[in-house]
Design a protein around this nucleic acid. Structure first.
Length: 294
DNA sequence: AAAACGTGGAA
DNA sequence: TTTCCAAGTTT
């Protein structure tokens, strides 16, 4: 073997990396954290404009924490990225940074893991991409790429396990900066070449050594998981309700919410979970608003 | 450990 | 038109 897997993929990354704004060398750890939270289950194409707007308005955690319109402003700025609880978590991260870390995003992995909405993936991504540390960064792209290139399987398991972390850690170069770069490269390859549906193996820098290809590109073992329809779910109703409040500049009466969904039982249930999540408040009986809205 | 949690674009 | 899927986290 002339060059390691990480080396080959990193070399490819050097010329093929997309020019994403949060990859700019002057991006702060806060900017990296914002990107990682936004990218949780949301495609790059939709995140990019939201990230630019977010950082323009709140260039630091302190700026965000001090904004008197929070957290309503965060929820509004979040727009339609989906999973709006992430907007709340990001605001809470800003507050935590100010209260616990002198206004900075911490570099320590355990301190990162203690931030709201920051799990195993996001904490390691920030530690690696913002601080250049050597940690396995394992997201769905990396799991899929490693499952194929190393494991010879068409698909990865359903969730990130300690085994996944260990497997990726074993692939990383020793030098921290190289390891962080390799992690970004693995993710990029999984995102644009080693994709889920029709992998573009002709464009892959490690196609000749890929265990899955060597095995004849066998199909996935399990056909597929549940289809998970969206129409008619509580999720859709929550989205409709929150959209009304996002677009309103004063607290709205219940009648404004009643019209977005005909089933009162499901509507009330969705509203109750929004209240429980802290995404909606009742400033006065019978009226609803985003938290902190003035 | 399974299920909840949004949204929109591509196939 | 329907299904798949996108840099996950939390309970």
């Amino acid at each position: 073997m002339s060059v390691s897997l990480a080396g080959a993929v990193t070399l490819w990354f050097d010329s093929a990396a997309r020019d994403l704004p949060w990859r700019s060398p002057d991006t702060t750890p806060w900017g990296v954290l914002v990107s990682e939270i936004m990218l949780q289950q949301t495609p790059v194409s939709r995140v990019t404009p939201a990230w630019l707007s977010w950082l323009a308005r709140w260039p630091t955690p302190a700026a965000m924490a001090a904004d008197p319109d929070q957290p309503a402003a965060a929820i509004r700025m979040w727009g339609r990225l989906g999973y709006p609880r992430r907007a709340l978590r990001l605001y809470e991260c800003a507050v935590a940074a100010v209260e616990r870390h002198g206004g900075e995003i911490p570099s320590d992995l355990d301190a990162l893991l203690a931030l709201p909405g920051v799990g195993s993936y996001t904490a390691r991504a920030v530690a690696a991409f913002a601080f250049g540390q050597r940690h396995p960064v394992v997201d769905t792209n990396v799991r899929r790429f490693v499952a194929r290139a190393v494991g010879g399987r068409a698909e990865a398991g359903p969730a990130t396990t300690q085994r996944d972390l260990d497997a990726v850690a074993a692939l990383l170069p020793e030098a921290a900066a190289d390891a962080a770069r390799a992690s970004a490269a693995f993710m990029e390859l999984g995102a644009v070449v080693c994709v889920a549906r029709s992998p573009r193996c002709a464009a892959c820098p490690v196609a000749t050594t890929c265990a899955w290809r060597r095995a004849g590109s066998p199909p996935a073992e399990v056909p597929g998981q549940r289809t998970q329809t969206y129409a008619g779910t509580d999720r859709q109703v929550r989205g409709l309700l929150l959209a009304v409040l996002r677009d309103a500049d004063t607290p709205v009466p219940a009648t404004r919410l009643d019209i977005v969904w005909p089933d009162a039982v499901q509507r009330d249930r969705a509203l109750a979970t929004l209240l429980a999540d802290g995404l909606v408040v009742t400033p006065e009986p019978g009226r609803y608003a985003l938290p902190g809205a003035r």
